[in-house]
């Protein structure tokens, strides 16, 4: 029962990630791509980790996955911010392409 629920949540997470990957081919300027794809990717990542944690129950495995989840949730916005700020300061204009 627990395994089935975990696998279902993992599949939902993979669907979110797939939508995020579609997002980097749909738009024609960098800002829209960065806004859409990396953020939907974050939601998919969160869902997949929760699925793995439910599947394994309460153990040291789940706690370690939780630590990785917290660290990634802290550094993920830093990566996106640094990337987009670099483009903004270097003078990338909207609709240039």
């Amino acid at each position: 029962m627990q395994e089935t629920i975990g696998t279902l949540i993992i599949i939902i997470g993979v669907v979110f990630v797939a939508i995020g990957v579609i997002g980097i081919y749909r738009f024609d300027n960098f800002y829209a791509r960065a806004l859409v794809s990396s953020k939907v990717d974050t939601v998919g990542y969160l869902t997949l980790m929760i699925g793995v944690m439910i599947k394994n129950g309460f153990s040291f495995f789940s706690l370690k996955v939780f630590v990785i989840l917290v660290i990634t949730m802290i550094i993920n916005p830093l990566i996106t911010h640094s990337m987009v700020r670099s483009a903004h300061i270097s003078g990338y204009k909207i609709g240039k392409e």
Partner: peptide, 9 residues
Amino acid sequence: TLTPGTITL
């Protein structure tokens, strides 16, 4: 930044 749709510059 973590909320989808907005990024702090």
